[in-house]
């Protein structure tokens, strides 16, 4: 192991430390009660305007956001150093794919947060990224050097980078979908009212719309990732589709997210049912990543663990 690899590891550990700080900050923000003044939206006014107006938790969540930016920058450097060390794109095995996916999750969240207030989603995103990194450095760590010949192709860059961005978007979508389900459940129990940390979260309907937005972005990209994978498979294995377990679960994931979009335009299914489907799609994505790589004998089994 040489200096670049060590530096990469150091940056990744530093990023994890920063993410832990961010997690604590977001958790404090969540536990802080929001001022009990309901936001009155006068009839006939622009109904979409809905600003979370927290008082005590606000500073903590701002700290959380800043530290998340810092953690993402550290992770970015760590991933780049890893790529420089290996002298190729940093997603040649499961360890590298995991650290790059954690970066993808954080980037999707941060880029989106420049366009709207997403501080309420920070806790979920940071925990997910931290778990992914923790798994990467403990279980999946490999000192892999060279790629197996099947991976030596520019399609590795195209196909896998699309999958990484999808990993980020699917995860964020699963987060907003879960929150909408929790909020909807609490509301139906308490006659439409929520209390405690849930007051920091947008309304159920808003959460559903946000889920729809992020998945409407991710679904065509996933379609692209699958098509790119098929073109690559045709080049490497002589067929564009062979129902390899990886391909099968990519297909199942695609079908589930297609079902999600259909549910969104079906009366009676566009609410909680659609949210559940979004979570199922994410689970299927996770099965495809962890399950197929580790437990199944697949052409894609080059986990390196």
């Amino acid at each position: 192991m040489n200096g670049l690899a060590e530096a990469s590891n150091a940056f990744i550990y530093a990023s994890m430390a920063a993410l832990t700080v961010a997690m604590v900050a977001f958790a404090i923000a969540f536990s802080g009660k929001r001022s009990a003044v309901p936001v009155v939206i006068p009839a006939g006014d622009v109904a979409l305007v809905e600003r979370p107006a927290p008082a005590p938790g606000r500073r903590a969540s701002n700290i959380g956001m800043s530290v998340t930016w810092l953690a993402t920058a550290l992770l970015f450097i760590g991933v780049v150093l890893r790529g420089l060390w290996a002298d190729r794109v940093p997603w040649g095995n499961m360890y590298e794919f995991s650290i790059t996916s954690a970066l993808g999750i954080l980037l999707v969240f941060l880029i989106w947060s420049t366009r709207r207030d997403l501080r309420w989603l920070g806790l979920f995103v940071v925990i997910t990224a931290l778990l992914t990194l923790g798994l990467a450095v403990t279980v999946l760590y490999t000192e892999a050097a060279q790629l197996v010949p099947a991976l030596k192709s520019y399609w590795l860059i195209i196909h896998v980078s699309a999958a990484i961005v999808c990993a980020g978007a699917f995860t964020v979508g699963a987060g907003t979908a879960s929150l909408s389900l929790i909020r909807s459940r609490v509301e139906s129990k308490n006659g439409g009212q929520v209390s405690g940390w849930l007051t920091n979260v947008p309304s159920t309907e808003r959460l559903r719309t946000l889920t729809n937005r992020v998945l409407a972005f991710a679904f065509p990209l996933w379609t692209f990732a699958v098509i790119a994978g098929a073109i690559w498979a045709e080049n490497a294995w002589g067929r564009y589709w062979g129902w390899d377990p990886k391909e099968t679960w990519a297909f199942i994931t695609w079908v589930l997210y297609a079902a999600y979009l259909h549910a969104r335009s079906t009366a009676g299914w566009r609410g909680n049912v659609a949210s559940w489907i979004a979570i199922l799609g994410w689970i299927s994505f996770l099965i495809n990543y962890f399950g197929v790589n580790i437990f199944v004998n697949s052409l894609h089994s080059y986990a390196g663990v």
Partner: peptide
């Protein structure tokens, strides 16, 4: 739309055994 949704689900479900059991084709 409901039927196509159910069929999409069915398609996802019937695809699963092929990834768990070994397949003649592969």
């Amino acid at each position: 739309m409901r039927t196509s949704l159910i069929l999409l689900f069915a398609l996802a479900v019937v695809s699963i055994p092929g990834s768990i059991l070994p397949q003649r084709g592969t």
